[in-house]
């Protein structure tokens, strides 16, 4: 399995920055997410997590630091959380941290919905 690293650019702020590291068992998605053809962007990330859960099976931490994601992106993030929940149910060790800006209460509600829909426990952490 290979790592995934995608850096952000000021000219395409609708793509998030991504860092998926197989050796560290660490994934991070940050910035904003409202690109066109959302599923095409997220499919490699979804497949990476599926492969990790199937073949690597070590603990995995996911940090989400998205300050905005459109509703299409929320569907893809939900897909990721559902895969992680399945991994956890099969004995995998998973930790999900969601960083949020305390001046954006709507995001807290969004995370509560993700928890309810996926069954995955999500730790809410305020941005410093």
């Amino acid at each position: 399995m290979e790592n995934i690293t995608l850096t952000s650019s000021p000219t395409t702020p609708y793509f998030p920055e991504v860092s998926f590291d197989v050796d560290k068992g660490f994934c991070e998605i940050s910035g904003e997410s409202y690109m066109e053809e959302t599923y095409k962007f997220y499919l490699p990330l979804i497949n990476w997590i599926k492969d990790y859960a199937k073949h690597i099976k070590k603990p995995l931490d996911l940090n989400i630091k998205l300050i905005y994601l459109n509703t299409s992106s929320t569907k893809c993030v939900l897909d990721i959380l559902e895969i992680l929940k399945d991994f956890e149910d099969e004995g995998g060790k998973v930790k999900v941290n969601w960083y949020f800006d305390k001046s954006d209460p709507d995001m807290v509600e969004e995370v509560e919905d993700f928890e309810a829909e996926s069954g995955m426990k999500i730790e809410l952490i305020e941005f410093e």
Partner: peptide, 25 residues
């Protein structure tokens, strides 16, 4: 609305259809 949002997002086929919750949101 929150119930509808959860229900629609879970049941959306995803991919090119997105989450189908833009108006609710």
């Amino acid at each position: 609305l929150r119930e509808l949002k959860r229900e629609q997002r879970l049941n959306s086929p995803g991919e090119k259809f997105g989450a189908r919750i833009g108006l609710i949101q």
